[in-house]
């Protein structure tokens, strides 16, 4: 089996994997980073969103071997010890999650929006989120959380 190496949440990791191993499988099954979820099999739901070299990507749609040498960030790497990242804190403060299953992907996606658009409008947030499905919140409080999180990150 081939070996794949990358940096995940700042740590260098390396493993032998079957060539068909998806990035999400590598994160969950090899590294035990189970915060990244799988909610569909058609690359639609966005529960698996992580950052690859700083940009959001659906980890169910990339082979682990495609990100050889890349810098990968997952939900587990966001908080600073016990202190939540401002975007995580905004979700907590604004009840932007219910069952929590889609949440890691939504938060990682939201951070990529703010990276390219520091002060998004409500409409821009709603349109950006077209790659993330949530069945619990009706998106109302997710949108509110992202707007608040963006503001806090400017702050």
């Amino acid at each position: 089996m081939p070996t794949v190496s990358m940096t995940v949440n700042g740590k260098s990791v390396s493993a032998e994997v079957e060539p068909r191993t998806l990035l999400v499988q590598y994160l969950r099954e090899h590294l035990g980073l189970t915060g990244t979820h799988v909610g569909c099999d058609t690359s639609q739901c966005g529960a698996c969103v992580v950052h690859v070299n700083g940009e959001s990507a659906k980890s169910c749609t990339i082979l682990a071997m495609q990100v050889e040498g890349a810098d990968v960030a997952t939900i587990e790497g966001l908080a600073d010890g016990d202190t939540l990242h401002p975007m995580q804190e905004a979700f907590r403060e604004n009840h932007g999650l219910q069952c929590g299953f889609c949440t890691p992907g939504v938060v990682m996606s939201a951070l990529d929006l703010v990276r390219t658009n520091a002060d998004p409008s409500e409409r821009e947030v709603r349109e950006w989120l077209e790659g993330n499905l949530c069945r619990c919140t009706g998106y109302h409080n997710i949108v509110k959380s992202i707007l608040a999180g963006a503001k806090a990150m400017q702050g």
Partner: peptide, 11 residues
């Protein structure tokens, strides 16, 4: 929320 937001939920 803290466990869900930090990826530490246990599904």
């Amino acid at each position: 929320d803290k466990r869900f937001l930090t990826g530490r939920g246990k599904y």
